[in-house]
Design a protein around this nucleic acid. Structure first.
Lengths: 326, 326
DNA sequence: TTGAAAGCGCTAACAA
DNA sequence: TTGTTAGCGCTTTCAA
């Protein structure tokens, strides 16, 4: 079933059938009716690949994220996807598994598909993929971070400021002995460093740090707390690089009869949907992932449709969510 | 930059350049070298859309899931995506938000893209979309359920048997007064019904049921437990339609000083990655989502490449994971 | 408002 | 092993 068949059946030229389907306003109501009838009768589904090739607009947007399971980025991806779909776009999803090589391979494959836009969870470091991407001319949104040198558009926030804000929050609560639990992730490192600087500036001791590497699990959170107990038993506040790690710390503390937050404050990052209803409720840093997804989609669509984007760079900020655990 | 340009630069015909790029073995090493040099020099990235149109193979697979945030299906999607990528395929992801209309719209849009295969989280009910999909001839994998009338291929398991197995497990533990907490989902209903039948067959009383509708949150689990306390205070075992709801029940029980599992057994469904490390560890029904994703990818690829699929229908089963909470 | 002609960039089918 | 020709199914451009 092709447009040809439908056109023949409706007794019009293919291009007229195309117009009836895509821009119904540009066609007489008589023709419109005939074409619609023909479409109905044949069960015709337009071949978007052919359309894309002819118009060089694919109506596809690609998104690349490190992980899709229990990942802080999924709220962003979901909102991105929904906003795109409502505007007639489809989402291609790739996952880099926190690997630079895989990200480059993914990007190479994605560029070949000629998407109308690319969403990146994070910022792309200089390298072959970045060069290629810039050369491709495809609109890009980088996200979840800030940089002076974005490829194109950027919807993010400052990890540095988060580190500072969390440190201040804990100091305000009267805490003095800090520890950090983080996964292998450059952004988490920056939050941790900013946190340490504030602590140091306040004349507090060194921050005891546990790095769990790629093991971003609740179990790692529990194990990390045991290490903290051994290496820095006086610790009274812990900043974790994810809510899951924070849940692990809280779980282990409770299992050992250490009261959260009386004896120990715990802060996470990301605000998982159920953090508010845990016992104790999880204090954390909230990022509005949905906002990021929606703003990215809007900008990518605007670009795809030839419109100028007013605010290509946005700092969406964050909020410290003070709940039971800190 | 098109294949033409590369071919001209290498001093060969376009089709020869195409072969050098796609089937390097079918070309002399001399030509191969020249073409590779030209590709390198121009930074040429093949236009897969044009290739797809010409070959009627898109090397795209579409997946449709109800939700992508905190969803039990994401392990399947992640494995599906990785397996596909390693074979040179890309994933298009659509989310139906548990809405039949949206699912139909999604499917219509997806068919227009001419993917080489479609993965469905669940089974597609009869209707326009199902008819269209069958008419399209696109290979389909339905999943996470069993049916006598699959559209095409099927990788699933029996919700009925799960309901029975959970009931037996709780009865074996000496429990007598059951309640169920479920979200609005036809599959959860079937598990619940099977559960009730076993309870009834054992001469136990009616199963007190709380339906949380679309509110699949930890909070709903907590609230549901309060309702159970009011409506059926003698309850000593609760089967929840998701781990998140089960976590809510456990949280509320603990907050009220009710001991899990001594006084109350709680079972979830799905086996979230951190269930094993919670306190108490969550008893649940484990589905190997990764297996489903991998098997689906393999079958879809086989079909796309014209190979016959040996086992188009697979029951991957499930396991009862007896941990601390039951 | 409608249509004719051309072509998007690639690959299938055939021929040399 | 390499090349010629034709065409995938649609939309752009221009003309009527």
């Amino acid at each position: 079933m092709t447009l040809q068949d439908v056109a023949k059946l409706a007794g019009v030229a293919p291009i007229t059938a195309s117009r009836a389907i895509n821009k119904p306003d540009s066609v007489s109501s008589e023709v419109l009716k005939k074409v619609q009838a023909a479409v109905e009768r044949t069960g015709y589904v337009p071949n978007r690949m052919a359309g894309s090739l002819a118009s060089s607009r694919s109506r596809m947007i690609a998104a690349i994220v490190p992980s899709t399971v229990m990942s802080v980025f999924m709220q962003t991806v979901e909102t991105l996807n929904n906003t795109l779909f409502d505007a007639g776009y489809q989402l291609m999803l790739g996952q880099s598994s926190y690997s630079v090589e895989r990200e480059e391979a993914l990007l190479e494959a994605v560029i070949g598909r000629r998407p109308d836009g690319i969403f990146l969870a994070g910022i792309l470091q200089p390298g072959r993929a970045r060069t290629r991407l810039m050369a491709s001319g495809i609109p890009v949104v980088e996200s979840w971070d800030l940089t002076q040198t974005p490829i194109d558009m950027l919807i993010g926030f400052s990890h540095l400021e988060i580190g500072r804000a969390v440190a201040k929050h804990l100091i305000d609560k009267g805490r003095k002995h800090f520890a950090i639990v983080l996964a292998g992730d450059e952004r988490a490192d920056r939050r941790a460093t900013a946190f340490q600087q504030v602590a140091r500036a306040q004349g507090l001791g060194e921050v005891f740090t546990v790095n769990v590497g790629d093991s971003r699990t609740l179990r790692s959170g529990r194990d990390s707390f045991i290490k903290i107990l051994q290496g820095a038993p006086q610790t009274d506040a812990i900043f974790c690089s994810s809510d899951l790690l924070a849940m692990g710390v809280v779980t282990e503390a409770k299992a050992r009869g250490i009261h959260v937050p009386k004896t120990l404050s715990v802060m996470g990052f990301g605000d998982v949907p159920f953090g508010a209803d845990m016992e104790p409720a999880l204090s954390t840093v909230r990022i509005n992932g949905g906002d990021i997804g929606r703003m990215a989609a809007e900008r990518l669509i605007d670009r795809a449709e030839g419109r100028k984007v007013d605010k290509p760079i946005v700092d969406v900020g964050f909020s410290i969510v003070a709940r039971g655990s800190a």
